[in-house]
Amino acid sequence: MQFLSKSFVANALGVYFCNDVNFVTDCAHWTNLVSGNCYTLDAEHQNALSSFGPDAGTGCSLYDDYHCADSPCTNLENPGSTDLSHLPPGGGPTYSCNDQINSFKCHSV
């Protein structure tokens, strides 16, 4: 039997996202993400996400562009958001990232 080292498990990054609120409809779980890399959503999920949840120990920045180049729409840590239409950006007023996300990058938290 092989065991994973604690450092490997701590650095394993993943996200779960869906096209509808409350994590239903057209969901995907992407795992083994590399910290700091930009990931562009597949065509099925571009401009369609309504819920996004980083796995435990993962924090992510979500972007409306395709290359993580603009300012992020929001930053989320586990458990994420069941409804991207109601997010407080960095303590500011509530606004919407709903159906606007096209790319994201994550890191360990």
Rank of each mutant, 00 (worst) to 15 (best):
Leu4Ile: 04
Ser5Thr: 11
Lys6Gly: 02
Ser7Glu: 15
Phe8Arg: 07
Val9Leu: 13
Val9Ile: 15
Asn11Glu: 13
Leu13Val: 08
Gly14Arg: 07
Val15Leu: 04
Val15Ile: 15
Val15Ala: 14
Val15Gly: 03
Val15Phe: 07
Cys18Asp: 05
Cys18Tyr: 05
Cys18His: 05
Asp20Lys: 13
Asp20Met: 06
Val21Arg: 15
Val21Ile: 13
Val21Gln: 14
Asn22Asp: 15
Asn22Leu: 11
Asn22Arg: 14
Phe23Asp: 06
Val24Trp: 03
Val24His: 04
Val24Ile: 11
Thr25Gly: 03
Thr25Glu: 14
Asp26Gly: 15
Cys27Glu: 08
Cys27Ile: 07
Ala28Trp: 01
His29Ile: 14
His29Ala: 14
Trp30Cys: 01
Trp30His: 07
Thr31Gln: 09
Thr31Phe: 03
Asn32Lys: 11
Asn32Pro: 00
Val34Arg: 13
Ser35Ala: 15
Gly36Pro: 00
Gly36Tyr: 09
Asp42Lys: 15
Asp42Arg: 13
Asp42Pro: 01
Ala43Leu: 08
Glu44Thr: 12
Glu44Tyr: 03
Glu44Trp: 01
His45Asp: 09
His45Pro: 02
Gln46Ile: 09
Asn47Val: 02
Asn47Trp: 00
Asn47Gly: 10
Leu49Arg: 02
Leu49Met: 10
Ser50Gly: 02
Ser50Asp: 01
Ser51Arg: 08
Ser51Trp: 07
Phe52Leu: 06
Gly53Asn: 10
Pro54Gln: 10
Pro54Lys: 11
Pro54Ala: 13
Asp55Phe: 15
Asp55Lys: 09
Ala56Asn: 04
Thr58Glu: 06
Thr58Leu: 12
Gly59Leu: 01
Cys60Arg: 04
Cys60Ile: 03
Cys60Met: 04
Ser61Ile: 00
Ser61Met: 09
Ser61Asp: 13
Tyr63Ile: 11
Asp64His: 10
Tyr66His: 07
Cys68Asn: 11
Cys68Thr: 11
Cys68Arg: 07
Asp70Asn: 11
Ser71Leu: 10
Pro72Ser: 05
Pro72Phe: 00
Cys73Gln: 13
Cys73Asn: 01
Thr74Val: 12
Thr74Gln: 07
Thr74Met: 07
Thr74Ala: 13
Asn75Tyr: 10
Leu76Asn: 04
Leu76Asp: 02
Glu77Arg: 12
Glu77Met: 09
Asn78Leu: 02
Gly80Thr: 06
Ser81Gly: 03
Ser81Lys: 08
Thr82Gly: 11
Thr82Met: 09
Thr82Arg: 10
Asp83Trp: 06
Asp83Val: 00
Leu84Glu: 01
Leu84Gly: 02
Leu84Val: 04
Ser85Asp: 15
His86Lys: 14
Leu87Asn: 01
Pro88Val: 05
Pro89Met: 00
Pro89Arg: 03
Gly90Ile: 01
Gly91Lys: 09
Gly92His: 04
Gly92Tyr: 02
Gly92Gln: 12
Pro93Leu: 03
Pro93Ser: 12
Pro93Val: 08
Thr94Leu: 11
Thr94Lys: 05
Thr94Gly: 01
Ser96Pro: 09
Ser96Cys: 10
Ser96Trp: 00
Cys97Ala: 14
Cys97Trp: 01
Asp99Met: 05
Gln100Ala: 14
Ile101Asp: 02
Ile101Lys: 07
Asn102Glu: 09
Phe104Val: 08
Lys105Ser: 09
Lys105Gln: 14
Cys106Asp: 10
Ser108Glu: 03
Ser108Thr: 13
